[in-house]
Computed example of a mutant assay.
Amino acid sequence: MSSENRQRTEHGAQEEHAQKEELKKKIKEQKIVVDELSTLKKNRTVYTQQPNSNIFFLADKGETLSACKEDLDNMRKEYQDI
């Protein structure tokens, strides 16, 4: 194996490791969100942030919780695939 190919392989491995660590961090954050939403009392209000914006809108707690759980499941599957 030439040194150029070895460097490409090492660089690819480093990128994959960095990607895996970033995804692991996002999974931890999502777990916290799911836990926080799960422990809220029924009468508490929940707001969701619009993507790429600082605007928040009133949201249904149940729908938000199920969407967050689905996101967490997708992240876990992606993590296993790496």
Rank of each mutant, 00 (worst) to 15 (best):
M1R: 05
M1V: 07
M1K: 05
S2T: 15
S3A: 09
S3F: 11
N5R: 08
N5H: 07
Q7A: 03
R8G: 00
R8Y: 03
T9F: 07
H11N: 13
H11M: 07
A13L: 09
A13G: 04
E15M: 01
E16Y: 02
H17K: 07
H17S: 08
A18Y: 13
Q19T: 03
Q19M: 01
E21R: 05
E21H: 11
E21K: 06
E21F: 04
L23P: 14
L23E: 08
K25S: 15
K26Q: 15
I27C: 08
K28C: 15
K28S: 15
E29D: 14
Q30F: 12
K31H: 13
V33Y: 13
L37D: 06
L37K: 02
K41M: 11
T45G: 09
Y47R: 00
Y47P: 11
I55T: 06
F56V: 00
F56M: 00
F57W: 09
F57G: 08
F57T: 04
L58I: 01
L58A: 01
G62A: 00
E63L: 03
E63H: 06
E63Q: 07
T64C: 00
L65E: 05
L65V: 01
L65I: 01
A67R: 05
K69I: 06
K69A: 03
L72N: 08
L72S: 07
D73A: 14
D73W: 12
N74D: 05
N74P: 02
M75G: 08
R76Y: 13
R76A: 01
R76Q: 11
E78C: 04
Y79E: 01
Q80Y: 08
D81V: 12
I82E: 00
